Amino acid sequence: MRSARPLFLTALGAALLLSHVPAAAAAAPAPAPAPAAPTVTAGEVMPHLQALQRIADRNGGNRAHGTRGYAESVAYVKRALDRAGFRTQLRHFARDGKDGVNLIADWPGGDPNHVLLVGAHLDSVPMGPGINDNGSGSAAVLATALRVADSGLRPARHLRFAWWGAEELGMVGSADYVAKLSAADRKAVDLYLNLDQAGSRNLQQYLLVKDGKNGGTEAFRAFDDWFRARGFATFDIPLDSSDSQPFGDAGIPSSGFSSGVSNCLHTACDDLANVDPATEATSTNALIDVVWQFATATPNR
C-alpha cells in the first residue's frame, strides 16, 4: 500500500505556496458597470413647457431675442439649475442692437479636459411662443440636467448644458459661444449634442444629425440604436442643416436630433397644444440615455 505521507506533504506544500502568492497576482476585480440611465415621464417634462407658455402669454405672445419674454425664459431655467446645484453663468452678446444671452450650466466634477456639452436654443420667433420650436428641446435638456442632479451622477467627462439665445436669427448665440472659446477650451469639448423640436405632433421619423467629418458618428449611432430598439424610424440629416453647425464648423464632434418640423413652425399656433407629451417624453429619454453613455465612458483621446 502506498504511503499517504507524500500526498499530504504535496498538498501541504501546495497550500504553503499558494499562501505566498503576491496579492498583485490575484485576479483584479471587474470594473463596476456604468450606472443605468434614469427615465422621465411626460408629467415631469411638460411643466417646463407650461411655464414657458405662461411666460409668452404675459409678454406679448412670444419669447424672442431681446424681449422680456426671452429674459424671463432664461431666468426660469437658471433658477431650476441653481436650485439643483449647477454652476450657472450668463454669456452676453449683441445682435440687432439688443442684448443676447446664452445660459451655461456646469455640473461639478468630471475631467475638464474632456467635456460633454448638451444644448438647445431657448428663443422663439416674434410671431409666436415657440413651444415646440424650441421650448420642447429646451425643456428636454433641462429635464436631463435635473436628472443628472437628482441621481448625483459622477461623470467621467465634465458635463455642461447650454441654452442658446438668438438662434432664430441664424444660430447667433451658439456661434458666439464657439467663437469665444480659446483653442484649449475648444479642444476640450469631446462632443456636442443638440436638441431641436423634440415634441412634434406629426412625428413620422426622428431626424438624426450625422457628423461624418469630425467624429460625431458614435453619438449618431447611439441615438439611432436607441430609437430603432423602440420601433421608431430614423433618417439622417447632414450637420449643416442642423443647429449643430457652428460646432461642426469649429471641428467639434456633434450630433443630436429633431422629431420633425412642426405644422405650426414660426407661427402663433406653436403653443402648448402643438406639443405631443408622449413624443416629448420619448425625446427626453433618448437624450438622457445617450448623455449617460458618453458622460460615464472613460475618454480615450
Rank of each mutant, 00 (worst) to 15 (best):
Leu116Gln: 07
Thr67Phe: 00
Cys269Leu: 07
Val275Ile: 12
Met171Ile: 14
Phe232Ser: 13
Leu193Ser: 10
Ser254Tyr: 03
Ser254Lys: 06
Thr67Met: 02
Asp249Val: 13
Leu265Asn: 15
Pro38Lys: 08
Thr88Lys: 03
Ser136Glu: 11
Pro33Phe: 02
Arg91His: 11
Val101Phe: 02
Ala184Ile: 10
Glu167Trp: 01
Asn300Met: 00
Ser3Tyr: 05
Ala143Gly: 08
Gly212Arg: 09
His266Val: 12
Asp176Ser: 11
Leu239Pro: 05
Ile252Asp: 07
Asp240Trp: 07
Trp164Arg: 06
Gly248Thr: 06
Ala23Met: 06
Asn132Pro: 03
Pro112Phe: 02
Gly69Asp: 06
Pro277Gln: 13
His158Val: 02
Glu168Lys: 10
Asp185Leu: 00
Ala281Asp: 14
Pro35Arg: 05
Arg186Pro: 04
Ser241Trp: 04
Lys187Asn: 12
Asn300Lys: 14
Ile131Gln: 06
Pro112Tyr: 04
Leu49Val: 09
His48Glu: 11
Gly135Asn: 11
Arg221Ala: 07
Leu191His: 12
Gln293Tyr: 03
Phe223Ile: 08
Ala297Leu: 09
Ile55Lys: 06
Leu18Tyr: 01
Arg58Lys: 14
Val21Arg: 11
Ala4Glu: 13
Ile131Met: 03
Ala297Phe: 02
Thr282Gly: 04
Thr296Tyr: 05
Ala175Lys: 11
Phe93Glu: 12
Ser244Asp: 13
Ala175Gln: 12
Val74Tyr: 00
His266Ile: 10
Pro29Phe: 04
Pro6Thr: 14
Asn59Ala: 11
Asp243Ala: 07
Asn59Lys: 09
Thr298Asp: 12
Tyr206Cys: 09
Ser19Lys: 00
Asp133Met: 06
Asn132Tyr: 02
Asn102Asp: 13
Pro129Leu: 01
Ser138Arg: 12
Ala26Met: 07
Gly137Lys: 09
Ser259Ala: 15
Gly170Ile: 08
Thr88Val: 10
Ala75Trp: 01
Leu159Ala: 07
Asp289Ser: 15
Gly231Ser: 05
Gly13Lys: 01
Ala188Pro: 05
Ala184Asn: 10
Thr41Asp: 12
Asn59Glu: 11
Gln50Val: 05
Ala71Cys: 05
Phe232Glu: 15
Pro6His: 10
